[in-house]
Design a protein around this nucleic acid. Structure first.
Lengths: 224, 224
DNA sequence: TAGATTGTTAATCGATTAACAATC
DNA sequence: TAGATTGTTAATCGATTAACAATC
């Protein structure tokens, strides 16, 4: 098994990996044993070329004349992602969104393990969310010293996001899943940040609708 | 005011628009009146060229030797996105995530207006979420006939997503914000779909951590 | 063996960056 | 006018697609 070239992979490729993982998982659930890049491409609205190129960034998982064994392929992609690692994860901010993230996501399926929830509001202390008791933020340092979590989910207001993130880095956090409506900027380049802006996402719908209406040139909705 | 070439804009450009809108909004809040593509680029970790190229897809909003008036620029981007349109929006699925989306998002800021929440579970009927009463799904057709919503948010299990979406298209829905863990496929090409996969997003963190650990070649975590 | 489909190299396409003339 | 910065064209870079020899 040749050690695959794991560095210098384009982020576009990396962002497609979870989607491959998902689709292959669905096919396996349906009882499909093997598939070809062409078949997968049709199902996923990609090209066969792209799928082969993407996978070959990490290794040769297929077999000429046969295609890909799906269970094997899924296992390999899972390894690449680190789906079995169970990275210890803590969540900050037990508001509407924080609670929903905590209880709605199956962290185990995504390589993470939610081990703590913190909130700065003392009135939320000991409240139960997703089988965990919300902790006051002043318990944070003791907890980190014992548990050593590596991933932090930020569901807090943007005003406090950067300050908390910097502090968390000093306590050993290596990756941020950031819902705080603020683009985190990290000085250490090896800190991983995934900024999620749900507002940006829904705005693209508005753009699409606005643009669709503008298609017919003599629309009355042309409010210029 | 020349009618800008609104079609054939790359989706990469479109996806950056909300981010421009956000950053410019922040600067305005801080009292900044004008800025240049160079300044904006530094703040947003982009290049000045890219910002000028992106904006010039829609029109010339700047002034040579001066830069961009931020209030004007924000207004223009807002128009392009349709931030003032208030597209009528309905949400399906009043579970953890649905409730959080309904109460956490300021839809007005994103060009949408949440006007209804539906759930198939009769026990949730009349429950209050974000100032709205959850409606039973069998009230849907009457509601649509009266209100004519254009945007649907799907916070439902993947098993029922495609079927519901097809039905909603027949009732006049033009855009989907889809959290159902399933990639919607629409036959009409003018239906807008934004599939949100939070699982995919957090998996890229796991990838990053797994890859970071693999950097030093003789790490003990090499579980091959 | 013949057929299928990969892994991989080469060609194309599109997006980003650089350069610069236009102009405020 | 001189300085700054845009809008826009040209050059570069990277990603996708096509092609095909290798091989199961």
């Amino acid at each position: 098994m040749p050690k695959a070239k794991k560095s210098g992979i384009s982020t576009l490729v990396i962002k497609r990996l979870p989607r491959y993982y998902r689709f292959i998982g669905e096919l396996i659930k349906q009882g499909v044993v093997r598939s070809s890049s062409g078949e997968l491409a049709a199902k996923m609205s990609l090209t066969a070329s792209q799928i082969r190129q993407d996978l070959n960034c990490f290794g040769g998982f297929g077999q000429q004349g046969y295609g890909y064994n799906l269970i094997e392929l899924r296992t390999e992609i899972g390894k690449i992602l680190g789906i079995d690692k169970g990275y210890k994860t803590v969540l900050f901010g037990a508001g509407n969104l924080g609670k929903a993230i905590a209880s709605h996501m199956n962290f185990g399926e995504y390589g993470c393990d939610l081990v703590g929830i913190f909130d700065s509001d003392l009135r939320k202390e000991n409240e139960k969310v997703a089988d965990l008791s919300v902790m006051s933020i002043d318990k944070m340092e003791d907890f980190f010293a014992q548990v050593h979590p590596q991933v932090a989910i930020l569901c807090i207001p943007k005003a406090s996001a950067q300050e908390l993130a910097d502090k968390l880095v000093s306590l050993g956090i290596k990756a941020f899943w950031n819902f705080s409506h603020y683009d985190l900027k990290m000085s250490h380049s090896d800190i991983i940040v995934e900024n999620v802006h749900l507002g940006d996402s829904i705005m693209t719908l508005a753009y699409g609708l606005t643009n669709l209406n503008a298609h017919s040139d003599d629309e009355s909705s042309d409010d210029a």
